[in-house]
Design a binder for these strands. Structure first.
Lengths: 199, 199
DNA sequence: GTTTATACGGAGGACGTCTCCGTTTTTCAA
DNA sequence: TTGAAAAACGGAGACGTCCTCCGTATAAAC
């Protein structure tokens, strides 16, 4: 029943933590350079370790993504805490979305990680997207409660829109374009008349 | 100099056209079923032909996508002709975007094809994206000229937004979400006050 | 130093892409 | 018809990546 109770108390080997760290550093560098296309063999080689070791530490590519970008996600969570205190809730929401885009702009592999997260069949979805959707929902809820924004879009939809648009990273001025798209989208959500007839 | 002049006048073989057609039918089915993940081996097998024949007809995966979806693109071009006559230019633009989304909804592989088109390094970009951007630009220009829409977004940006958002196809109600996103975006483009301060 | 649990490494199988060239099919001229 | 030339076909095989498996190496415990 209780696996923890009858496990021998042998310390975990010292090389494990060291190798894990090496792998993460190598992966971060590889993803930054080659984005989603980086091969895992290359990551292992860069870390000076065998491919088998990589797979033991991170059984799937998604697990590796998650470990590499977990810290960044936490940063976005912290930022949403700060921005919940901004006087204008729409502005707070806007700033958070811009920060998310900024982050993806500097980390090539991150977009790939999020794209995987968009696929509901992968467990990474629950962690990355779940966490971020929750934060976004908080900011969005605040703006809606204030009466400034309508309820046209859900937090999840907004997040997916950002992720989707960021997939077009290879365009010349994609970052500015995406930010303008987001701003325009927010403008569209502001309580006013509607452009779209129902038919 | 003139390659056409001194080529022998032998007719092109009759099997070529037949096999090309078979490959297209098989590819269309395979892409519809498996999306971007369909293997080219499977396409060739489904067509009852060798893999070598597939590659001779369509040297790259993108070439095959292009051939499979060319007709659909032409349909969108024709639709934009029709919609240029609609009284309300914003409504015309909106309908065209919805039609594009509808089309992607029924053809799994099409989104993959467009996503490739978003990568400027591939020649398919010039054909698919170029054509569609031109049509969208026409509809958008008309709406801007009427004074109803501001010039916040370019046709290319709008198109890329649609493509990006459609990449999230695996979500439960993605199609409705994307359409609502587009409607909201259009609302945001309508000439009114702005939500986003400059800082 | 010996034992033992644990981790490492990389060979190898599976699978997809793409090429190359011997074989087959089609066209054309006689 | 039939033979030869041109053109297309087919699939074996080289290559690259993913991922697993298990013999070997190493750290911890005693």
């Amino acid at each position: 029943m209780d696996a923890a109770a009858n496990r021998p108390k042998r310390k975990t080997r010292s090389d494990v933590a060291r190798n894990r760290e090496r792998l993460l550093i190598a992966a971060k560098a590889a993803f930054a350079q080659d984005g989603a296309r980086a091969t895992l063999d290359a990551v292992a080689r860069k870390a000076g370790l065998g491919i088998g070791t990589l797979y033991r530490h991170f059984p799937t590519r998604e697990a590796l993504y998650e470990a590499v970008y977990r810290r960044d996600i936490e940063q976005l969570v912290a930022l949403s805490d700060d921005l919940s205190a901004v006087a204008d809730p729409v502005e707070g929401l806007r700033r958070w979305l811009h920060a998310a885009i900024d982050m993806m702009a500097t980390k090539k592999g991150m977009i790939a990680a999020f794209a995987l997260g968009a696929d509901k069949t992968l467990p990474i979805s629950a962690r990355f997207n779940g966490t971020l959707t929750a934060e976004l929902d908080r900011l969005l809820g605040r703006a809606v409660d204030s009466g400034r924004l309508g309820e046209r879009m859900t937090a999840e939809e907004l997040l997916l829109a950002v992720i989707g648009m960021c997939m077009l990273r290879d365009q010349p001025h994609w970052q500015a374009s995406v930010m303008r798209l987001i701003d325009t989208l927010l403008d569209g959500m502001i309580q006013k008349g509607r452009a779209a007839p129902d038919g």
